[in-house]
Design a protein around this nucleic acid. Structure first.
Lengths: 221, 221
DNA sequence: GGTACAGCCTTACACCGTAAGGACCCCGAC
DNA sequence: GTCGGGGTCCTTACGGTGTAAGGCTGTACC
């Protein structure tokens, strides 16, 4: 068995998924094609179909692999702390794999890691005394907020806090005079001030949701 | 000028956008191609490029057209009522044009209707006494929640409440025995009960956010 | 009457996902 | 030892995609 054979034998679903995630991170999900993915693995496109049913299956696997990276809610710290940490972890992972959020709207068959994660979240809330109904409310509210935040963060026309200034200023310069006065005020008086980072908005909204859930839970018992 | 000429002369950017939105609604955004869009307008694909710079511009226009359908926050009703109504309208519009939320993550150049909408929201909050900083917090929190909810709603493997039962039951049946116990409990004891509709979760989370903002605003003044 | 241009067209290219089927190699059965 | 089966990878091919390049025609204005 030659080294190149060994390299070939090593190819499997997980390696394909990992390479796809790397490629998506480097060049963007929209330029991820079976041919390029094969190329990055030293293999023809059609060979990938031995490890993945089709491209949709590949994308499903990528999303599930992202969920697998998210910390499960910790035990023994109270539901609020556990949920807060989990939300921060989820947001960090989704931001790191920015392509994932755009995939979620077309993926309707959750993978094992996704199911395991959801199960752990629900279990944590139930253990924290939430009724089944309130658990459903809480689950929906928290995840909606986290996904939506990442989506909005991604849709911003800039990545780092440093880029914000120039991009925003270029945009403002193109507005007709007097247009969107409140937007302009918010941008100039706040967003363009040194040190502003949209990412910092995450925890404010998260605590809004968590505090609200805490009150709802107290009202329930 | 013959009638067919008149029909041709009528083709413009807005008509192209409208046809694209109809097509996306009928057949899904992933099957929307320039050729099919041209066909639906009785025109060759390349002719569309006189009304739209490229496909990205088309998608930008579609998203902006969706924002144009959302009610602007009403004046004279207090920020909380206005924001609540706006959120309900946004969710209704985004659910109606289900393809839009998937487009948002790849669109970084907001259109006029989008900017006008955001400006009105910011103006409403400022008029309600929010500081610039709290306005940024509120804006981020509310929109994150709404977008995220629609995204999650879309990712569910069923559309109507009626479909829920059969799809969920088919899924549960495939789980290994004893797997995901909390998920199974939530599904059987709550989601699969008659009358459950995931869409009803929207207002609970929305009020969580709005009530939290009200407290934050009170704390500020 | 000439000319510019708007609107639509045809042709062509490089890319995409994947169906169909063939070559090779390892592994277990005889 | 050899024979067959199956896993892995390959080549080829088809029908789709977005869009660059350029041609044709009719209308609008100098």
């Amino acid at each position: 068995m030659s080294p190149s054979d060994a390299a070939r034998a090593a190819l499997n679903r997980e390696l394909v998924l990992r390479a796809a995630m790397t490629l998506a991170g480097e060049s963007g999900i929209e330029s991820l094609s079976m041919r390029k993915l094969g190329q990055s693995l030293g293999v023809e496109a059609m060979s990938l179909y031995h490890h993945v049913a089709n491209k949709d299956d590949l994308l499903d696997g990528m999303v599930d692999a992202v969920f697998a990276e998210v910390d499960l809610p910790a035990a023994g710290v109270g539901w609020k702390t556990a949920m807060r940490r989990r939300a921060l972890s989820m947001r960090e992972v989704l931001s790191r794999h920015g392509w994932a959020i755009g995939l979620m709207d077309s993926r309707t068959t959750p993978g094992q890691a996704t199911l395991r994660h959801h199960d752990a979240v629900i279990g944590c809330l139930r253990a924290g005394g939430f009724s089944v109904g309130l658990t459903a409310h809480a689950f929906s509210a928290m995840d909606s907020y986290v996904y939506g935040f990442v989506l909005q963060e991604r849709a911003l026309p800039f990545g780092t806090a440093e880029q914000t200034a120039e991009v925003a200023q270029a945009m403002l310069a193109q507005f007709p005079a007097g247009a969107y006065p409140h937007l302009v005020e918010l941008a100039t008086a706040h967003v363009l001030q040194p040190g502003y980072d949209y990412g910092d908005e995450f925890e404010f909204g998260l605590d809004l949701v968590l505090d609200g859930l805490e009150r709802a839970a107290a009202r329930e018992s």
